Computed example of a mutant assay.
Amino acid sequence: MEEVRIGVIGLGMGFSHVRTLAAGKIRGASLTAVCDVKASKQDMARAELPDTVKIWDDAEAMLSSGEIDAVIIATPHYDHPSEAIFAFEQGLHVLIEKPAGVHTKQVREMNKVVAGSGKVFSIMYNQRCNPLYQKLRELIASGELGEIRRTNWIVTHWYRSQSYYDSGGWRATWAGEGGGVLINQCPHQLDLWQWITGMMPVRMRAFCSFGKYRNIEVEDDVTAYVEYENGATGVFITTTGEAPGTNRFEVTGDRGKIVIEDDKITFWRLRVSETEFNREYTGGFGEPECWKCEIPVYGDNPQHSGIIQNFTDAILNGTPLIAPGEEGIKGLTLSNAMHLSSWTDDWVDIPMDEDLYYELLQERIKNSTYQKTVKETGPVDMSTTFG
Rank of each mutant, 00 (worst) to 15 (best):
D381E: 08
D381S: 03
E219G: 08
D221S: 14
G256L: 01
I26M: 07
D79R: 12
A59L: 04
A115L: 12
R269D: 06
Q162Y: 03
E219D: 14
S122W: 05
L361T: 01
D346L: 00
Y298K: 11
G256C: 01
V94R: 08
I315Y: 05
D355W: 04
S122R: 03
I322F: 05
I55P: 08
T275R: 13
T104Y: 02
V218P: 03
P296T: 07
G241S: 10
G318D: 05
V235F: 10
G318L: 00
D43C: 02
V8I: 15
G234V: 02
Q371M: 12
E250V: 15
L95P: 10
T373L: 15
D349W: 00
S117T: 06
D349G: 07
C290M: 14
G10L: 05
V113S: 09
F249V: 04
E89S: 12
I315C: 10
G169V: 10
Y358K: 07
N301H: 11
Q90L: 00
N317L: 10
W291N: 13
A61D: 13
A100K: 09
K54H: 12
V18S: 12
D43W: 03
L361V: 03
N310M: 00
N230S: 02
G198Y: 03
V34E: 06
V37N: 04
Y225R: 14
R19S: 14
D220N: 10
S122H: 09
Q185S: 13
S167N: 04
Q42T: 01
Y225M: 14
G331A: 15
K38C: 10
E261F: 07
L360H: 05
A87T: 03
Y164D: 04
I350W: 08
M352R: 01
E363H: 09
D262A: 13
R46C: 02
G306Y: 06
V102G: 04
T385E: 14
Y281I: 02
F285K: 05
F249E: 02
K98N: 09
I68S: 05
E97I: 06
G10W: 01
V18N: 06
L11E: 07
K38I: 15
E138M: 09
P99N: 07
I265Y: 05
G306R: 08
L63D: 07
K375L: 13
V37C: 06
F207N: 14
E97G: 09
Y165Q: 07
M124L: 15
Y78E: 12
R150K: 15
M1V: 12
V8T: 06
L63Q: 13
S335I: 04
S167Q: 02
V102P: 03
T151I: 15
E97H: 12
Q194A: 14
E177I: 05
